[in-house]
């Protein structure tokens, strides 16, 4: 590993974990297989403190201003935002579909909840994703163990609180195994109220 270790600077507030920003954009001509996904995803940078986070985040385009089929990912350092990663392969994600215009605000709020360790599920959270699509935008939070219902319920309840979701918001959980099987992140999800 030739990348240098990222640590908090003097006077900065350390985060519980280091996090890495990633960006991906699907080129319409290519099929969405694993290989092309890995080719289309780029690391933006890693942060170890609250201040380093703001410095990097403030330079990024707001997700609501992105066009086309693109995603921002913020994952714990060392975890690739891919279903096949060791930390993700037994995991899954909560999905919240957002109407256009809400993505930037919800993205910031879910990030702040993750960086501030608001979910209280130990090591379970892997990262968060905002997916910009044509009709709607989608927010997801990935965790390590899809079968751990105590963890997934706690993540769902924390999401409702930190995002201030209306009680009737539909939240869907999809295991990465199911995503691999149907080669889709958001299709055929089980609806949970």
């Amino acid at each position: 590993n030739r990348r240098k270790t990222i640590t908090p600077g003097p006077g900065e507030h350390p985060l519980q974990y280091n996090y890495t920003f990633w960006y991906s954009r699907r080129t319409p001509s290519r099929p969405a297989n694993t290989q092309s996904y890995e080719q289309n995803i780029r690391q933006i940078g890693t942060v170890a403190s609250v201040e380093q986070f703001w410095k990097l985040y403030s330079h990024l385009v707001r997700p609501g201003d992105l066009t086309g089929h693109s995603d921002f990912h913020l994952f714990k350092e060392g975890i690739k935002p891919m279903w096949e990663d060791e930390a993700n392969k037994s995991g899954g994600k909560w999905i919240i579909r957002l109407r256009k215009g809400l993505a930037s605000r919800f993205w910031e709020n879910i990030i702040l909840a993750m960086l501030g360790e608001q979910f209280m599920v130990g090591e379970e959270v892997c990262g968060v994703v905002v997916s910009i699509r044509f009709q709607e935008d989608i927010l997801s939070i990935w965790n390590k163990t899809a079968s751990d219902q105590v963890t997934t319920s706690r993540i769902r309840d924390t999401l409702r609180r930190v995002l201030n979701l209306p009680p009737n918001t539909i939240m869907e959980y999809k295991t990465h195994n199911d995503s691999l099987k149907d080669n889709s992140s958001f299709r055929n999800t089980k609806i949970t109220l």
């Binding site: 006077g11 507030h13 410095k55």
Partner: peptide, 21 residues
């Protein structure tokens, strides 16, 4: 071990710190 927990307000306040620019 101890966890480093920050609430939303604290994190937003840090945004205006000179270190965050």
């Amino acid at each position: 071990g101890t966890r480093i927990i920050y609430d939303r307000k604290f994190l937003l306040d840090c945004r205006s710190s000179p270190l965050a620019h």
